Simulated scan of single mutants.
Amino acid sequence: MKNKRAIAMMAIAILFGLAAVVLASRWLLRQPAGSADRIVVAATDVNLGQRLTPDMLKLAEWPKDSLPKGAFSDVSMLTGRVLKNSILLGDPISEAKLAPAGTVGGLSALITEGKRAITVRVNDVIGVAGFALPGNYVDIIVSTQKERAPSDKGPEQSISKIVLEHILVLAVAQEVGRDETKPRVVNAVTLEVTPEQAENLDLARSVGSLSLALRNQVDPQDARTDGATKRSMLNEPLAEAAPASASAPKAVLSPVKLVIKAPVRQPDEPKRACVGVLNGVKVSQECF
């Protein structure tokens, strides 16, 4: 009796389970098809500056409500375009990641409009021990001799000064990849600068030695410094200023007219008659 009751309960449970499956499948069939679209994504990892080929791309399903702005749905529209950002496998390709149409691949595709690329020779010290990698920002420091004033007869004074700030590193040596984080000691660094900055950098390179100072990529503050000299480094007091009388212009004295008065001649006294008087041993003179 107990076995029959258990079997009956199992049969009822199975029936309810089958009924739930049937109802769920009917409900799913009545739902509208999922809203998805096919867009072009990367079929492999692609570095910036490379020209796209069909074997680097593929179509993939992407939800319509989260389509990237500027996404493409046709692989042929991207053939020959140049990337200005590195992409990974499965990343969607959008217009924002591409250089302008007609751009030739290579470093020139990475340069922002209105800017220039200039290469600076570096070593393991100047190049911040190889940590100045593509995508990083650096400051340029020049060490040179400070010009003397014409009146200054002392020796030339050395000075180190930051001449350019927040400069983007486009490439190190002949590589423009930005995915590496390991330091690489190279002999040249290519920087992105404005035309005016390019002139200043070329002048700084010719008048002194250059150094790179690696900076935080999200730090926008400018370094307002007066430069470092031997005197400021050693905290030596400034030379005393010359006396004001030495540098002050001499006063011009106006000519003074001297008036010389002739001496006033006293009138001659009338002549008087005088006689000598002998009084004992004393002799005196009396005039009339």
Rank of each mutant, 00 (worst) to 15 (best):
K2Y: 01
K4Q: 02
K4C: 06
R5S: 08
A6G: 04
I7Y: 00
A8L: 03
M10W: 05
M10R: 03
A11Q: 03
I12G: 00
I12Y: 00
A19C: 02
V22W: 05
R30Y: 14
S35V: 10
S35H: 10
A43L: 05
G49E: 01
R51V: 05
P54C: 08
P54Q: 15
M56D: 01
W62N: 06
P63A: 04
D65L: 03
D65C: 02
K69V: 10
A71Q: 06
F72Y: 10
S73R: 08
M77T: 15
M77K: 14
L78M: 07
R81N: 05
K84H: 13
P92W: 09
I93S: 02
A96E: 13
L98D: 09
A101P: 14
G102I: 11
G102W: 15
T103M: 14
L107P: 13
T112R: 15
E113I: 11
E113W: 09
A117C: 12
T119K: 01
V120A: 05
R121E: 02
V122E: 06
D124E: 02
D124F: 04
D124S: 09
D124M: 05
D124T: 01
G127R: 04
A129I: 03
A132I: 07
G135Y: 14
G135D: 12
Y137H: 15
D139L: 04
T144I: 06
K146V: 13
E147N: 07
R148D: 11
A149H: 12
P150R: 05
S151R: 02
D152A: 11
K153T: 14
K153N: 11
P155N: 09
S158V: 12
I159N: 07
S160R: 15
S160C: 06
V163W: 04
V163P: 00
V163N: 06
L164E: 09
E165F: 04
H166W: 13
I167V: 12
L168S: 13
G177H: 14
R178P: 01
D179M: 15
E180L: 12
V185F: 07
V189T: 10
T190E: 02
L191D: 13
L191F: 14
T194G: 13
E199M: 10
R205H: 06
R205K: 10
S209D: 06
L210W: 06
L212H: 05
L214T: 01
N216Q: 00
N216D: 03
N216R: 01
Q221H: 06
D222P: 00
A223E: 10
G227Q: 01
G227C: 01
S232W: 08
M233R: 07
A239C: 06
P243M: 03
P243S: 03
A246H: 05
A248C: 00
S254R: 11
P255C: 06
K257E: 14
K261V: 15
P263V: 13
V264F: 04
R265A: 15
D268A: 15
K271D: 12
V275S: 09
G276A: 05
K282R: 00
K282I: 08
E286T: 03
E286P: 00
E286N: 02
C287D: 04
